[in-house]
C-alpha cells in the first residue's frame, strides 16, 4: 500500500512555496529564496556527476557560461529571451561535453585538478577580454525578459526550474541510471565487465549537470542585471561541493538540504566576507567527523542512543 503521507506532504509544501510571495514577506527574503533555488538547481546536477566518482570543483564555470551566453545572445545578437535561455543551457552542455570527453577519462585528484584549472582558466579569459565579455568589470544592464520584472516573477521562474531539476535528478537516481552511476563511482571495472559504458554515462551526467547550471546562470544574469567573472570563482564552485558534502550524497534530499541550509544560515548569521570561512570550516568538520553529511545526523544519534 503506497504511503499516502508523502504525496500529501509534498503537495502542501508545493502550495506553500507557490503562495510564498503573496505572504507579504520582504523582497530581500524572496531574493534569498531565489538564490537558494538557483543553488539547488546547480547542486542537484553536480550531485549526478559526483555520484559517478568524479569530483568536479569547477562547476561554477558552467553557471558562468550560461550567464554570459544568455546575456550575449540577448544583448549582442538581439535574440529574444527564451531562445537565449535554452541556448545558454545548450552552450553550457556543449562545452561540458567538449571538456568531458578528454577529461572524464581521468579520475580522482587528476580530474579535480583539471576542473579546478578549467574554472580558473575560464575566469581569466573572461576577465581579460573586454570585448565581448566586458572584462573584469563584467556586463551591466542585462534586461528583464518580457513579462518578468518583479522579484516574485523571478521567484516563480527559479522555483519551476528547481522543481524540474529535482524531478529530473530524482528520477534518474531511482532508475537504472542512478544504479549505474553509483557502481561506476565505486567499482568502475565491475560496471564495465557487465557491459556498462563508463565514458558515456559520465559524459551524460557531466553534460546534464552543466545544462542545469547553465540555465540557472541565465536566470541569474537576467535577475541580477549584472554579471562579472568574480561571481563565478573557485569559491563558488566549492560552495556547491560543500552543499553536497554537508547535506549528504545518499539521495537527492542531501544536496537539497545542504543547499538550503548553507545558503540561508550564512545570511541569517550575516556573514559576508566570512562566508568561505564558514563553508570551508563546515567541509572540514564534516570530512573529519561526519562522514555522511548532515543527513546522517539522525542516524548517528540513533546509534548513540542504542549503544547506551
Amino acid at each position: 500500500m503506497k504511503n499516502i503521507r508523502k504525496p500529501i506532504a509534498i503537495s502542501i509544501g508545493l502550495i506553500l512555496l507557490v503562495l510564498l510571495p503573496k505572504a507579504g514577506i520582504s523582497n530581500y527574503t524572496i531574493h534569498l529564496f531565489i538564490i537558494t533555488l538557483l543553488n539547488i538547481t546547480c547542486t542537484v546536477g553536480l550531485w549526478l556527476i559526483v555520484e559517478t566518482g568524479q569530483l568536479s570543483i569547477g562547476h561554477a564555470a558552467f553557471m558562468c557560461i550560461g550567464a554570459y551566453a544568455s546575456t550575449l545572445f540577448v544583448l549582442k545578437l538581439g535574440l529574444p529571451f527564451w531562445p537565449s535561455f535554452f541556448g545558454a543551457g545548450l552552450v553550457s552542455g556543449f562545452i561540458a561535453v567538449c571538456l568531458g570527453i578528454p577529461s572524464l577519462r581521468v579520475k580522482g585528484a587528476y580530474f579535480a585538478i583539471l576542473t579546478f584549472g578549467f574554472g580558473e582558466a575560464l575566469r581569466l579569459i573572461i576577465s581579460a577580454l573586454v570585448n565581448p565579455f566586458g572584462g573584469v568589470n563584467g556586463i551591466v544592464g542585462i534586461p528583464n525578459p518580457k513579462g518578468f520584472g518583479s522579484v516574485a516573477s523571478y521567484y516563480y521562474f527559479s522555483l519551476v526550474l528547481a522543481l524540474l531539476s529535482i524531478y529530473l535528478t530524482k528520477r534518474l537516481h531511482s532508475s537504472h541510471w542512478g544504479l549505474n552511476f553509483r557502481f561506476i563511482g565505486h567499482e568502475d571495472s565491475l560496471a564495465e565487465s557487465v557491459g556498462i559504458d563508463i565514458m558515456w554515462h559520465k559524459v551524460i551526467a557531466f553534460m546534464l549537470a552543466a545544462i542545469l547550471a547553465g540555465l540557472a546562470g541565465s536566470i541569474f544574469a537576467h535577475y541580477h542585471h549584472y554579471i562579472a567573472p568574480d561571481f563565478f570563482t573557485f569559491y563558488e564552485s566549492v560552495s556547491f561541493i560543500s552543499f553536497i558534502i554537508v547535506g549528504g550524497t545518499g539521495n537527492v534530499w542531501g544536496p537539497i538540504t545542504g543547499a538550503i541550509v548553507l545558503t540561508i544560515v550564512p545570511e541569517v548569521l550575516e556573514l559576508k566576507e566570512s562566508r568561505p570561512l564558514f563553508y570551508g570550516g563546515l567541509i572540514m568538520a564534516v570530512v573529519m567527523f561526519l562522514q555522511n553529511g548532515i543527513v546522517d545526523i539522525p542516524n548517528l544519534i540513533q546509534r548513540k542512543i542504542r549503544w547506551r
Binding site: 569530483l55 566549492v238 558534502i245 566576507e273 568561505p276 563553508y279 570551508g280 570550516g281 567541509i283
Partner: peptide, 12 residues
C-alpha cells in the same frame, strides 16, 4: 576535500 575546505578557511 579536506584540503579544499582548508583552502577556503585560510584564504577567507
Amino acid at each position: 576535500v579536506l584540503s579544499i575546505g582548508l583552502s577556503l578557511v585560510l584564504s577567507s
